[in-house]
Design a binder for these strands. Structure first.
Lengths: 358, 358
DNA sequence: TCCAGTAGGGCGAACGTTCGCCTAGATGAT
DNA sequence: ATCATCTAGGCGAACGTTCGCCCTACTGGA
């Protein structure tokens, strides 16, 4: 005996069984399927009795709405796409979580497409999402900055908000003030009296690297110190390992430095390790400042002084802007840059060795 | 003048314009839309000339396939859903990346649904994904372990593979051997001569916590040491902050301990900080071992001894199993448990202070 | 008694695909 | 010249919804 699809049979082994449709619900409740649609979407006027009958029928057959069919006729999926880089980047992860919470709050579902480790297929992610007809896209992938194909794929068809600058594309940007970040960090080190300040930069192509670098230089200029012409700068790749390696290179090239600014906290962690291995005490011999205020920062030994970036707020605002855009609001004419704040802990020499982290 | 939807006009400001359908392509190429479908899917036989005409037309109107419509008729979306917990959990992030790479390799698209921070709505994520008719689900959310509603939502309708044990549900599990993890860590500490070994455990409800705990106890028994009855165990929450706090509590309750095993590396990081603040040297006064081999482990001061868990492999195998399941393979009758390996660094006392981490 | 108004629900069409079947013409062998 | 066989492409139906319009049977007021 083959069971009818309308009778899944409670508790039976019905793996892979077809989903019930509103027609199945309708025939079970003895109404037309359009009436079922009305009930399930809360529209129209139906007698309380039929309403309850229909809802019970839907429950019994385990009805799950088909977003494909719905999207086909409504020309909209009430779904937002997020294009994310490697989520194991902590910083990005927090952006995304915040953004998704905001979307949820506003009544939107989100799906995430992750670009692969190579990071070369941002355009492919756009395709995946636009084929599924998401109503808008939030870009949280630094790789997108340089993706030339991206503009063509987007085709101006979808509202887009990005957390990163995107080359040659006029999409609204929500981020933090990277220039201020670099300036605050270096200015603080200068206040401590440091003159030979090394920098572990982010990857060279990226906007955030350029801007944080510009902030460093501004702080140096403001203090009347001259630019070292990049002599004390080494490029990292945002990872702990990269920061470690860059610091070793830097110490070889500029052994005189007494302070170090890393373009993110993870590289700063690697830097502290490298300094330790080279027998330099932090902050005694070399002061270290990172930025982002990643979770490990306040628990390292010594605790890491850093510049706090408002991840949650950034993600939230970006998503709110995207939803507004979809609802027809005019695109913001300029970037939204959130302010950052210096957080003094131990590694810059501000606090006693064990004073602050509690 | 209103432009026809088939004439987007290159370079024009056509934001929010409708997507072109195969009918638009067809009329531009002068064929029936079904023929367009054939060409775009590589089926049927068409003259080279028409084929090229159609492809050009598709390019010109910027055709993007509608996965909604396609999925409606084919009853399948060639899409896998991933239910993920907070992606800022590094460990989970690496699972997911590996799983997605495997899916991509096998020709499947993936979309991720993140459960929110509260983590209470795993069932809601299942709904989001099944409404969109994904062909299978990979669960990468520890919260799912205890979700009672989950079984009802899944309804045995979708193939599911999980990275975590799920209470009361017979879904294939791919993970690592948590008992062995706990046993390896504690056995190593015992070999170093430690007898008073503290444990910072994971959250108490979780399977992984129970199993790693069981591993600890087995190691103690095997060495002829008796169980301390939980006297030297404090519960953490997998975070650095949680490990820090738990360690402070533990030191108060059991000041005699000479070694510490944390149920993950992040808590171990917090533990090292706490020990430092209490004036205990690591590994001199207290040896510390974590597990997972998270990226910071080899760069902390001192570098963290740990038990390596094969994240990439786990994610890859889980996804491969899911795809096989969808293709009709029988569900594996038992869990797939991957082996783990001890990694000796400095914090257990194995290496010299600066010897290993390079 | 008659008619307007309303509540309750049915019905057709459309959304953008895929899929299998059908047909008109060309081709080749006999 | 006849007929079977291809080739190229058309055609109808279906997938599961939503939406607007239509119909029927009450209800109540004049």
């Amino acid at each position: 005996m083959v069971m009818a699809p309308t009778e899944p049979g409670p508790g039976s082994a019905d793996a892979g069984r077809r989903y019930a449709s509103i027609k199945d619900v309708a025939s079970r409740a003895g109404v037309s399927y359009q009436t079922v649609s009305k009930v399930l979407n809360g529209g129209g006027s139906v007698a309380p009795a039929t309403l309850e009958r229909i809802q019970r029928a839907a429950d019994e057959v385990g009805y799950v709405p088909n977003a494909l069919a719905r999207g086909l006729v409504t020309r909209g999926t009430k779904t937002l796409g997020v294009i994310a880089a490697d989520p194991s980047d902590h910083v990005l992860g927090r952006f995304i979580v915040a953004a998704q919470n905001e979307a949820r709050r506003l009544g939107w579902a989100t799906v995430v497409a992750n670009v692969d480790a190579a990071g070369s297929d941002v355009a492919g992610c756009v395709d995946v999402l636009s084929e599924r007809r998401v109503d808008g896209i939030l870009m949280a992938a630094p790789q997108a900055e340089a993706d030339a194909e991206l503009g063509a794929r987007l085709r101006d068809r979808l509202p887009v908000v990005s957390l990163h600058h995107i080359e040659g594309l006029r999409v609204p940007l929500v981020g933090s003030d990277h220039v201020q970040t670099g300036a605050l960090a270096v200015a603080h080190l200068i206040e401590h009296g440091h003159r030979a300040i090394g920098v572990i930069s982010g990857t060279s192509g990226r906007q955030v690297t350029v801007l944080r670098m510009a902030g460093c230089e501004r702080a140096l200029r403001d203090a009347g110190l001259d630019d070292d012409g990049g002599e004390r700068t080494q490029e990292g790749d945002w990872t702990i390992a990269g920061g470690y390696a860059a610091t070793l290179r830097l110490l070889e090239r500029a052994p005189d430095l007494t302070a170090l600014f890393a373009h993110n906290d993870y590289m700063a962690l690697g830097a502290i390790r490298a300094l330790h291995e080279c027998g330099r005490r932090v902050p005694g011999d070399v002061a270290v400042v990172g930025c982002d205020d990643a979770p490990p920062a306040r628990y390292t030994v010594p605790a890491l002084s850093t510049v706090r970036v408002p991840f949650e707020e950034t993600g939230r605002i970006a998503m709110a802007q995207l939803v507004a855009l979809i609802d027809g609001a005019p695109a913001p004419t300029r970037s939204t840059l959130l302010p950052v704040a210096f957080v003094a802990r131990e590694s810059c020499g501000c606090a006693s060795e064990t004073g602050d982290a509690r």
